[in-house]
């Protein structure tokens, strides 16, 4: 190892030891800083505990000589906590810049304590330690921001999933008959959700027939047709027969033009026709009875 590398490492170790030794004092000071005070409002002890966890993380990263490494194992353990803190600040209207500033504000109190540790606060060793600690708190800031941003991505991903599910309701039409009215474009992600919801509904309703109504699907290209056929095949493996309904004349023409073979799939022009087909297949006869309220006797 180079001389400089060795020196840097021993500095990092010194910083790590300092953080451990002064954990309580640092935590007490941080607990009053905006970042912790505004998040942990229930009790100050709670804030102090959270601060201690962060001090531990910094100490561990320093001990490993990884003051610049946001993937250092120490940070991983406080990632969830930091993410929750950042999310909580964001909910109360703090901008990302403000949150970053609040994390930066944590540096000063610790630096002050660190300087106090050295007989000569202006000496080389003290300066090196201050530099290492500054880099470490800089890394902490990146970790917080990265965690906050990825929390944002998670929210978006969750909303996207929920939207997909909301957009594909499975309806029970009759005992043993379920239907999915498809509306909008049927891409791969969407067709996965459709397939899963439909198969789960087949189990839940003990369905023998499943109707895929594509009245609301604007175009059927070969990819959409392939998705439909996969869904039909998966339903069959679960013991249910699929009927594809709502094939408008224009779509029927496109299918023929593209040379897509839906020959093995049962198709009907309307949802009503598909339901009639399914009922007949199940041996259910729908007949018009006497008007309600008229006695038979």
């Amino acid at each position: 190892m180079s001389e400089q590398g060795a020196a840097e490492e021993s500095t990092a170790v010194l910083v790590s030891e300092f953080l451990q030794r002064r954990q309580e004092q640092i935590a007490q000071r941080w607990a009053d800083a905006d970042l912790f005070r505004t998040v942990f409002t229930v009790s100050r002890d709670e804030a102090v505990e959270a601060c201690k966890a962060v001090v531990d993380a910094l100490s561990e990263a320093a001990a490993a000589g990884r003051v610049d490494d946001i993937t250092a194992p120490g940070f991983r353990r406080v990632r969830d906590q930091l993410g929750r803190m950042a999310a909580s600040r964001a909910r109360t209207g703090a901008s990302p810049g403000q949150i970053a500033g609040e994390v930066a504000d944590l540096r000063q109190p610790v630096i002050a304590l660190l300087r106090g540790e050295f007989p000569d606060p202006a000496g080389d060793q003290a300066q090196e330690c201050v530099l290492a600690l500054t880099r470490l708190t800089g890394t902490l800031r990146v970790v917080v921001m990265e965690t906050a941003l990825s929390a944002g991505e998670e929210v978006i991903a969750r909303q996207r999933e929920q939207l997909l599910e909301v957009a594909t309701p499975v309806i029970k039409l009759w005992d043993g008959i379920v239907a999915v009215p498809l509306i909008g474009t049927l891409d791969s992600a969407r067709s996965q959700v459709v397939m899963e919801s439909l198969l789960n509904a087949i189990v839940a309703e003990r369905a023998r027939h499943a109707i895929l109504d594509i009245t609301g699907v604007p175009t059927v290209d070969s990819l959409v047709a392939q998705h439909l056929m996969k869904t039909v095949a998966a339903a069959r493996l679960m013991g249910a027969e699929c009927v594809v309904s709502g094939i408008r004349p224009a779509i029927a023409q496109t299918i023929v033009h593209l040379g897509i073979d839906l020959g093995t799939v049962v198709t009907r022009s309307s949802l009503a026709d598909a339901l009639a087909y399914a009922l007949r297949r199940q041996g259910i006869v729908v007949a018009s009875g006497p008007p309600v309220g008229v006695s038979l006797s």
């Binding site: 505990e49 966890a53 353990r77 969830d80 906590q81 998670e154 991903a157 969750r158 999933e161």
Partner: peptide, 11 residues
Amino acid sequence: TGLPHPRAEAG
């Protein structure tokens, strides 16, 4: 593609 399972809350 889904979301990570919520980790057991530390502490």
